[in-house]
Design a protein around this nucleic acid. Sequence first.
DNA 1: GCGCCTTGCTGAACGCCGTTCATCTTATCT
DNA 2: AGATAAGATGAACGGCGTTCAGCAAGGCGC
Lengths: 287, 287
Amino acid sequence: MTDELPPLPWERARRRPGPARIPLTRERIVDAAYTVLDREGYDRLSMRQVAAELGVAVSALYAHVSGKDELLELMYARLFAGWSPPEPDPERWREQIMEYARAGRARLQRHRDMARLALGEIPFTPELLPHLDRLLGLFHAAGLPDHLVGTAGDLLSTFIEGFALEESIWNSRHPKEGEPSWQEMRESLRTYFRGLPPEEFPSLVALGDSMLDHTNDERFDLGVEIIIRGLASFAEEAARQKETTRQDTTREGTTREDDVRQDSARRDSAREDAARETKAPPAAEIG
Amino acid sequence: MTDELPPLPWERARRRPGPARIPLTRERIVDAAYTVLDREGYDRLSMRQVAAELGVAVSALYAHVSGKDELLELMYARLFAGWSPPEPDPERWREQIMEYARAGRARLQRHRDMARLALGEIPFTPELLPHLDRLLGLFHAAGLPDHLVGTAGDLLSTFIEGFALEESIWNSRHPKEGEPSWQEMRESLRTYFRGLPPEEFPSLVALGDSMLDHTNDERFDLGVEIIIRGLASFAEEAARQKETTRQDTTREGTTREDDVRQDSARRDSAREDAARETKAPPAAEIG
DNA sequence: GCGCCTTGCTGAACGCCGTTCATCTTATCT
DNA sequence: AGATAAGATGAACGGCGTTCAGCAAGGCGC
């Protein structure tokens, strides 16, 4: 970080006899990449720009980084640097998950277009395993059945990144100066919804107002709260079943199995419906 | 589709006097783009490849399409062609949402890398408004409070696309022939989890097995089910409050307000925690 | 102190990309 | 038949990721 400062022109000349130029490292490359990202945006983040930022030839980067893909992975890894979900507290799992989600969004918002970068990567490298493990621990402490924990993590992470991505796209769509600001945009959207033909768009006309009356912060929290409540429902169900099986531990023991079977039956009937819809698309849709 | 066939060399010469070549249209360009996407993948989907697919100069495309961005938008719009959420049935809102989610995933799976393409776009063009309106109608029929409907739609769409994206990345990671197949990969992951140091990764070791024992279909349905249960919780709460306010319609009427205030207080305390985490990152994390 | 060797950077090149523009072909209308 | 307008062409521009032969300089054995 601090050794970033002096690329001043004369430095190079003055310390010719010394240990010469600052050595290029992965760290410095990632630093420069973030600088370019913040200044230029994801679309203009290129190896050439990063090299220019460091005052170095493009090909020099390839001595430290196997290619752009690896550079993006390194940038992604930094998203999690020094960020570890807390020790699980079963009494506070709701709050802990909410805090985790907010922290994730905050980190994604810290760099321009960061969400776009993040969505292309999968958090499954060795160095990210500790983070993942502790996150799963949070869900485990909620009392979720084991097979749900992974999916719960997926769902939450997907929402965090997807939400941040939407914000990112929205922001980058009106970054030009003098363009309609956030608030103006919101107002024009409001009148747009009001002007729609109600018979054709009943829901949009009816709901448009109340959808626009909330900040992004509130909408985000609401999304997380929906997930939390869904998880709570499963956790309570699991607790109830555990209770039952403990009561008649030797009697039947099939309660849980029955539940699963019924659940999967409901799923399958719905799947047929979806398949029917899927199987008869209009001709124009083959693509 | 069928008029795609004859770019044969002599055709051009033979039918000189006829109605000549098939005219280039947006439709045909999008068709060709999908062909390229399926064959080459998202990374190699380029204007040049699309033009080549049509046997046409690159610049010809720009007479029908303003640029690559618009082409991608057109491709995205086709994802929704002939797909409309059903008439809401308040009795079956759970099933309807599950079916919608499954149909969405199925459509995203129909073309290679389609999820990657979709995530860059926002479903907010005029032609997509009918679809959006009917989707919101589904959530409205669930009895959700108005301000939640939009967020619910966001959450579901985000999960569908995020899940499909993850599948897409996973698939494209091992497309080489002779590479470890899905099943082999799963097994090697299983042994990998088992081999992890339990004191360092307690959750991964404990949960790895049960997480790997489910197909993607099951994991997807579970994710949607979590969302549905979360929505159900809010819907029940709203129904309860409506009931209460109807009972003592003139007496107090502050029940709902109280609830909201309490909710927001809980949120704010959590926000402070998140901010604390956010404000003191390790030095390496400035990026 | 001198030459060697290894390390790390340079500069040029390759092939691909999105986009633009002057030019030419061709279908249609008068 | 000739004029006109639409639409396709090919070359060009600038930028991209990546590769590779060569060069400069620090550290080492002698």
